[in-house]
Design a protein around this nucleic acid. Structure first.
Lengths: 348, 348
DNA sequence: TTGAAAGCGCTAACAC
DNA sequence: GTGTTAGCGCTTTCAA
């Protein structure tokens, strides 16, 4: 393969376009931004020159001069969990119709990393921040409180937001699932989830879950946590281990759909009667479930909608709208019984 | 919920820190950047003031003054296909050890959108560009050629790059899979893939595939394309439809693992003997396959490694290193026979 | 080791 | 409708 060296010439400036078109810098700037009144003639002259030269404006200079930056910082824990790319899709869908542009930062569920990413992004003076979760380090909170821009905390509503908030109550979600399980008559319940102490939403779901069980005089009969690796495979392995250890379980609650799907495949393979002998449920309502031999019971986490609403709040504020109580939205996750949770109370 | 309005005060400047610490702006700047010799005493004074005030530097002004921006533009077609988040992970892994920071733009496989995103990102004067694919609009190519920064085109090597390139040959990958299928003795082959005419890599794989078949006197006996929706489900549905339409097929080649997994689950459910009665193969070598009841034959697309190598090239160039022939890397995808492709020639 | 002056490339504000 | 001037908040450069 031959090697061509990349061009290394100085980037063009407004001045270059100005000289090439014989129009003042200021007017060139106006044309390129579609601002103010410019005669059609001048407009054309400038546009042609800009295009011919291949001029790319320098937003850094523009932003410094205008004190306006059309970037929105989006801070999420991970990209490996499809949940977050889906939130991003919702955000993009909305921002695509505005001059705003999302910029993504990933924290790997680490508060220190979140702090770094936040600092780095705020130093670009974005028009707003959309950030996952309500739990942040003191320094992070302070930065957001003092940034003077709209802050939307997403995905979770169990806590007090800095500014705006869009999400679901994971505690409530956990309770709701527990209630559905109890109502169906299951009694010996196992739980499987991630080992991450920093995944506050998973933790809150689990808390809500055990709380609702307790209210019915039940408790989690066995539990197991994993980290890393293929979630589908982990679900399969954990399920096998748990059923071996505690064979009398009649329900398995998974903290996410991927491990739940692994468990479901395992059960089907072993010929375990689902949902009669053992019931199963996950969380998130991921699209993947539609392709499984049986539909895993789950609960939608409304992530696309969350992304959209969060972006809308930022967009409205960028238009000059004031903060309003409507900037705090709790969505209601929908329970899906699927094929792995009995519909009526069993009679035994 | 109560509503606290976000702080709206003017962001702090170096001058504020300077006044608060009684040190000149210039020296404050030096401390905050760890540049030049500053006495320990002054250093401490400045750091304390900055921390106390909660100063967040303005990178816009800094970048304009220094003509240096530590951002790397990463342009990919989609976030919904896990392949791309995985590339991003590889990129982050490497950039995390440098001052560089990735900024992601998504094109939805649309050349016009790619052009927009590229223009937008270049206007921030990043230190480099990592972009998926070798096919771009003329305008996009021109922008990249004239940007005067390193450009790394990734994932594909079947074509001529602008500057650097890291990927696999999808044409070769398609051929290789065809050869393995032929060698195993399969003859009536069906193909399923995405309908996207703009997914050049999928297209090249298909071209390589049919080419190798032709060389053995074979051709694709049936084919079907889909778009949108749950890939797992689509794989299941397309497989059902195709086997109904063309019952004598003995192999199904899927352009990605998700639809392949759907097909596999369908076959297992129907009690079809895999790989004896029908063989199956996908592409990408996704982690998900590890959790399936049978391992789908596939081919790794080395996406994490691609991300790493691409980021390394940018990082080296940012250090001042010159372009080199080593900046064009072809990786070799590994064939995985799994459990769905017979190992030896069948004797029938 | 520290400071003062100039200017990065653009746009706000005002004049013409 | 178009041009001029000043300055955004930093860093570079050079002087002290």
């Amino acid at each position: 393969m031959s090697q061509s060296s990349p061009a290394t010439k100085r980037p063009l400036t407004l001045r270059d376009v100005s000289e090439a078109s014989g129009v003042s810098e200021m007017t060139v700037s106006r044309v390129l931004r579609n601002r103010g009144d410019v005669s059609a003639e001048t407009r054309v002259k400038v546009q042609e020159a800009a295009k011919r030269l291949g001029y790319v404006p320098n937003k850094i200079a523009g932003a410094l001069a205008s004190q306006r930056v059309n970037l929105v910082a989006v801070i999420i824990p991970s990209l490996s969990n499809m949940v977050f790319p889906e939130v991003l899709t919702g955000i993009s869908d909305v921002l695509d119709d505005t001059p705003l542009q999302p910029v993504v930062g990933v924290t790997n569920y680490l508060p220190e990393k979140e702090e770094e990413v936040l600092f780095e992004m705020l130093s670009w003076r974005p028009s707003g921040v959309i950030i996952a979760g309500l739990e942040h380090s003191d320094a992070s909170r302070a930065m957001m409180e003092n940034a003077g821009i709209p802050i939307v905390e997403i995905m979770d509503v169990d806590g007090e937001p800095i500014d705006a908030m869009v999400g679901i109550s994971h505690r409530r979600a956990g309770r709701k699932m527990a209630q559905a399980i109890i109502k169906a008559g299951y009694k010996r319940i196992g739980f499987m989830g991630t080992k991450m102490p920093l995944d506050h939403r998973a933790r809150k779901r689990f808390e809500g879950f055990t709380e609702a069980l307790a209210k019915a005089g039940l408790e989690v009969a066995d539990q197991e946590f994993y980290s890393g690796g293929s979630a589908l495979l982990k679900g399969r392995e954990m399920t096998e281990a748990m059923l071996e250890r505690t064979p009398d379980l009649d329900f398995l609650y998974y903290s996410n759909d991927m491990i739940g799907a692994g468990g479901l495949l395992y059960c089907l393979e072993k010929g375990i009667k689902v949902p009669k002998h053992i019931g199963l449920a996950g969380f998130n309502g991921v699209e993947l479930l539609d392709g499984l031999p049986r539909k895993l019971a789950s609960m939608g986490s409304e992530r696309r909608e969350i992304g959209k609403l969060a972006a809308q709040i930022i967009a409205r504020r960028a238009q000059g709208e004031d903060p309003s109580p409507e900037d705090r939205v709790e969505l209601t996750p929908k329970l899906k019984l699927g094929d792995t949770l009995k519909r009526k109370k069993r009679r035994d």
